[in-house]
Design a protein around this nucleic acid. Structure first.
Length: 277
DNA sequence: GATGATACCTGTTCGC
DNA sequence: TGCGAACAGGTATCAT
């Protein structure tokens, strides 16, 4: 399930594979994937356009095409891009094909069909729903402690769903929220506004460090995620809580437990991560 | 306005 | 073995 490190890994791979190539045509096999356009309209808009650059904002990919057109793509749960020789028969879950020059097809695969791509003029790209109100990128220079103190202080929401809400901080998903809360010894049900500045400083450091480490490892492969080169990420070997229910906490040895928080499976250590309200 | 619940999807796992 | 139910989860949208 792609979170920021996985999406950044995809962006880097795609940049090497398809930037500079021109779209000769497209084939859409699941209409809902191309938000707001019919397959024919999608094809007519993209045919003849060159892929200039691929940017990322949070978990969104921004394909910048010639002629001032941007395709905003969100992989959601299991979306993935990969390239194959032109003419390769698409598989059952390959929902969109981009026929590129140079004898290459770029395929978008998404078993659960949750992913969406939307075509908009460049100037409107950052106004697309979801992107418009996205929070700062979790890096040393863009996510300040002062911002976190102010933002967290405004909400009584449990910290877990608060962190999953992309309007507060961009790029975190279920896996890295569980990881960084455990590292920070913060209980998932702690109200956001009950976290002290010291706790937020620790949480901030862990978020920034964890996402940077995961990106270095090409992301986490939990189910079907692979890079644009068809490789699996390696960060799942580094996970300390996610997927380790019942196994001993790596800090205190107590078995990790699982509960539902805001409809999300949440793994935590009931000893290290003490609840307070 | 803030927060919570649900829909969207299908492959996998689990219990009977 | 075979079947159906539960589960996984990011975001948009609707409900409270």
């Amino acid at each position: 399930m792609p979170e920021l490190p996985e999406v950044e890994t995809v962006r880097r791979g795609l940049t090497r594979l398809v930037v500079g190539r021109t779209v000769q045509g497209t084939a859409v096999r699941w209409e809902k994937t191309v938000d707001g356009l019919s397959p024919e309209e999608f094809d007519a808009e993209l045919a003849g356009r060159r892929i200039e650059t691929i940017d990322r904002r949070g978990k969104y990919l921004l394909f910048r095409f010639s002629g001032g057109m941007t395709m905003v793509s969100h992989l959601r749960m299991e979306g993935a891009y990969y390239t194959v020789p032109a003419g390769t028969e698409p598989g059952k879950h390959d929902l969109v094909t981009f026929h590129l020059d140079g004898g290459i097809d770029l395929l978008y695969r998404d078993t659960r069909k949750f992913g969406r791509m939307k075509l908009v003029p460049d100037a409107e790209a950052l106004q697309v729903a979801g992107l418009a109100k996205i929070g700062p990128e979790p890096t040393e220079s863009t996510l300040s402690l002062a911002y976190m103190v102010a933002e967290f202080g405004k909400s009584r929401m449990h910290v877990k769903p608060f962190l999953l809400d992309q309007s507060h901080i961009a790029g975190l998903g279920n896996i890295y929220v569980d990881e960084t809360l455990w590292q920070s010894k913060i209980h998932p049900l702690t109200p956001a506004n009950k976290l002290s500045e010291a706790e937020l400083a620790v949480l901030r450091d862990n978020i920034i460090t964890e996402l940077a480490r995961a990106t270095e490892h090409h992301g986490t492969t939990v189910h079907s995620f692979t890079t644009a080169f068809g490789e699996a990420g390696e960060f799942q070997n580094e996970l300390q809580v996610y997927g380790r229910v019942g196994e001993p906490c790596l800090r205190c040895g107590h078995p990790l437990e699982k509960m539902k928080v805001a409809q999300r499976g949440t793994t935590f250590c009931p000893v290290c991560q003490v609840e307070k309200d």
